[in-house]
Write a protein that binds this DNA or RNA. Structure first.
Lengths: 137, 137
DNA sequence: AATTGGATGTAATGTTATTACGTTAGGAGG
DNA sequence: CCTCCTAACGTAATAACATTACATCCAATT
């Protein structure tokens, strides 16, 4: 059960790089980390990222031009039906917290319905400083 | 009253370009449109955009790497105290609708408070297709 | 065996943003 | 008046992010 989705070699490598990282990685950083595995060109990374994003295993952080593995350790098998996902990005330590709020999802969906707007993707990103870094400061 | 904030020549030109456009513009598009006004280098645009954003006269659309004039025709004098601003971006016609939802603002602020996260900037962007384009399709 | 579609490899190019360094303009205070 | 300071500006070079174009490979099907 929850069979791991059948990823290609490149997709597995890219997902692995993101899962082992302790924060978001840019496509070019991923490329650098996969040189030893045989990666040579940006496109190899971007192609894998496209698929992984499509599968819901990876998120793109628009305000960072970077990527993170999805926090919900869904065992690569099924996409959860959670609402709009939001990210809190610490500008100091780089850590990203992924969360979801039903009320926010419902208000935004409501606005879209009222406006006749069909949203295909919604981005919510908070940039700032996390509790740990605030405490350390 | 509501005295227009004192913008420099470059800032006025960039703001003007954004106000006259009927959608978001990339920094390089702005640069192209201001060649005749004497613009030569990207930095001239980016510097003006930084200030205009700081003044609240311009928004950056993270998912587009582009910029729009703030929809609230605040007469360049005072920043309104509205909550988090959201954007609905039509991928078909390129038009952008700016809106704000108190409940969304309050939920996100609430999450941040609970998590001890101090947000310095929050991005909400819906990508999709607007009512007009859906009707035309 | 031929065909097809998805994934891949590689190079070149396009697009977005910043760093570095030097100059200019205008106000504050001696 | 002159110096100091600061903000804005000009220019070139470079870095960072992303896509286009084209050829190849391989497995599943016919």
């Amino acid at each position: 059960m929850t069979a791991t989705r059948d990823l290609t070699r490149n997709q597995s490598l890219v997902l692995g790089a993101l899962e082992h990282a302790d924060g978001p990685l840019s496509a070019y950083t991923i490329l650098d980390r996969l040189r030893d595995a045989g990666f040579r060109a940006p496109l190899q990374v971007y192609r894998a990222l496209d698929k992984l994003t499509e599968f819901g295993l990876v998120h793109r952080l628009e305000s960072l031009n970077a990527f993170v593995a999805c926090a919900h350790g869904h065992d690569h098998g099924h996409a959860h039906a959670h609402g709009i996902v939001a990210f809190a990005i610490c500008d100091t330590c780089g850590k990203v917290d992924e969360f979801s709020d039903d009320e926010v999802t419902s208000r935004l969906n409501g606005w879209a319905r009222d406006a006749g707007f069909r949203a295909s993707k919604t981005t919510i990103e908070l940039r700032g400083e996390c509790a740990g870094c605030l405490a350390a400061a």
